[in-house]
């Protein structure tokens, strides 16, 4: 075969270019540890996510000192949870699946980008450094509301970040003179203990309790207020732990016709 000398030269240069490309990418995978979304995760049943341990409650979990796992569900046309909050200087592994059609989970302007396919779970680990807010888009067409499908990832400072869950429960009505008790459940889903203050504000009263909650523990506290000091009428109350609040309203009346009403807020 008759090949012109220049063309031979070009051919060699082209081959070098190609081999060079493959080499750099191989280097990125092997030496720098850039992993691809692959088949690491088992499949799930898209219609039974409510019964799936990982996806029944989309959330962020702490699994190591600076290591977190985020379980994310994409569906027409939203992401859960939203926003996803993680701390600075952390390694976060996202597990993303779909409840219905094919979506994507893509942090705008970054290379955090994966397809989300029903039945499959995409896994990718991301290092977050400084606090920042990222937009999340679905970049795979998923139906007529596709352009409304968005979310956010908030990388917050160490101080602001927690995985605390607060739930407070008080009576709807009490008779003047009876005690009002507000039950507070505080769960610390982080691995480390937190020291914090639980505050109840009701009427002009403010009650506080300093607590330490061990990692993974749930603390039950009850605040008690004498209804007589509040007087007759509706009184709003708020329980605060760090940034988390829960609130309710209690009615204080002179004579109640029935005795119920203390079972839920």
């Amino acid at each position: 075969m008759n090949i012109h000398a220049y063309e031979k030269l070009w051919l060699v240069a082209a081959m070098l270019l190609i081999v060079g490309f493959i080499a750099t990418i191989t280097y990125g995978s092997v030496a720098l540890g850039i992993t691809m979304v692959g088949d690491q995760q088992d499949t799930v049943e898209p219609t039974e996510l409510a019964d799936d341990d990982r996806f029944d409650d989309p959330r962020v979990e702490q699994v190591g000192e600076n290591e977190y796992e985020a379980y994310v569900v994409a569906q027409t046309f939203s992401f859960q949870p939203n926003p996803i909050e993680v701390p600075e200087d952390s390694d976060v592994t996202f597990y993303v699946t779909s409840r219905d059609v094919i979506h994507s989970f893509s942090l705008v302007g970054t290379n955090v980008n994966t397809m989300v396919i029903p039945g499959e779970v995409a896994e990718m680990t991301v290092e977050f450094d400084d606090p920042a807010e990222y937009g999340v888009v679905c970049n795979e067409y998923c139906g007529p509301g596709h352009h409304d499908m968005e979310g956010e990832v908030h990388v917050v400072s160490e101080d602001e970040f927690d995985l605390t869950e607060l739930e407070a429960d008080g009576p709807d009505e009490v008779e003047t003179g009876d005690e009002i008790s507000v039950d507070v459940t505080t769960e610390n889903r982080q691995l480390e203990a937190i020291e914090t203050t639980i505050t109840l504000e009701i009427g002009d009263e403010t009650l506080t309790e300093d607590v330490t909650i061990e990692g993974g523990e749930t603390l039950e506290t009850t605040f008690t207020v004498d209804s007589a000091t509040l007087g007759e009428g509706d009184h709003d109350w708020t329980v605060t732990v760090d940034d988390h609040t829960d609130s309710g309203t209690v009615t204080v009346a002179d004579d109640l016709e029935d005795d119920g009403g203390d079972d839920d807020e």
Binding site: G109, Y134, Y141, H147
Partner: peptide
């Protein structure tokens, strides 16, 4: 910049 393809409105509420 991260603007997705295949979307009617690459304009979102939460971010720019």
């Amino acid at each position: 910049l991260g603007i997705p393809r295949r979307t009617a409105e690459p304009q979102y509420d939460g971010f720019e």
